[in-house]
Each structure stands twice: as structure tokens, then as C-alpha cells.
């Protein structure tokens, strides 16, 4: 199955700018389905970005983060061609991860 994660990391000089998109419903627990039943909460809680075995960025998310979440940040100390690992875990314990190359 295709990964739920898409990542774009571009290094310019010292700084690497990272943009990532994750496919996830991010159900808040307050929305009703067509039958009027509440859709139970289902959302990503933690996203971790790792470079060279070190966490460079962590996101703690609540149900208020939009569906198919987007995140952008930047960090220092990486070079073109380095690996950047992304992983997430949701409130039901599901996980996914992806290794991206810094461009």
C-alpha cells in the first residue's frame, strides 16, 4: 500500500525546510455521519521527524488538527542527500513511517 506520508525536504545552505502531508481522517469525535451517529475520535497524536538518529521535530496533535494534516518546519545541520525519517501514531495505535531524502 502506498504510504500515508508525503514529504518534501529542501536544503538551502545551513537550513532544511520540511513540508509533510499525512493522509488521515483526523476525526474529532464531534461530527455525525449520514445516519446521525457520532463518528468516534480518530486522530494522529504524535508525529516525529528524525535526522541521523536524532529527533529534529515532534508534533503533538489533538483532534482539532485538520483532516489530511499538513506541517511545515525547518531545522539546521542536515545536508542534501541525507535521510529524514517521519513516523506517526494515532489514538487507535495505528502507525506509519517513511524515509525521505533531503533535496
Amino acid at each position: 500500500m502506498a504510504s500515508t506520508i508525503r514529504i518534501r525536504a529542501v536544503s538551502s545552505g545551513d537550513t532544511t525546510e520540511v513540508q509533510a502531508l499525512v493522509q488521515h481522517p483526523m476525526d474529532s469525535g464531534f461530527v455525525k455521519d449520514a445516519q446521525g451517529n457520532l463518528i468516534p475520535p480518530h486522530y494522529i497524536q504524535v508525529v516525529e521527524f528524525e535526522h541521523a538518529g536524532k529527533a529534529v521535530f515532534t508534533a503533538y496533535w489533538g483532534p482539532a488538527v485538520s483532516k489530511d494534516p499538513y506541517i511545515k518546519f525547518s531545522f539546521k545541520g542536515a545536508q542534501k542527500g541525507d535521510d529524514l525519517t517521519v513516523s506517526w501514531v494515532d489514538n487507535k495505535g495505528a502507525t506509519d513511517s517513511l524515509v525521505g531524502k533531503i533535496q
Binding site: S28, A59, Y70, F75, K76
Partner: peptide
């Protein structure tokens, strides 16, 4: 987001070396 059922939307610990900047999309 003050008026959301749970106001805290996201929390980002910032590591040394990471720029203090973050962009995301939230529900209101």
C-alpha cells in the same frame, strides 16, 4: 483555539537546532 471543545490544538516541542517556526492547518 479558545472556542473549540478542546482548546489545545497542537503542541510542538522545539529541539535545539530547529527553527522556532511552525505552519499547520487547524479546525475551528
Amino acid at each position: 483555539v479558545s472556542e473549540n471543545p478542546f482548546p489545545l490544538a497542537a503542541n510542538y516541542p522545539i529541539q535545539p537546532g530547529t527553527s522556532p517556526m511552525v505552519a499547520n492547518r487547524l479546525k475551528m
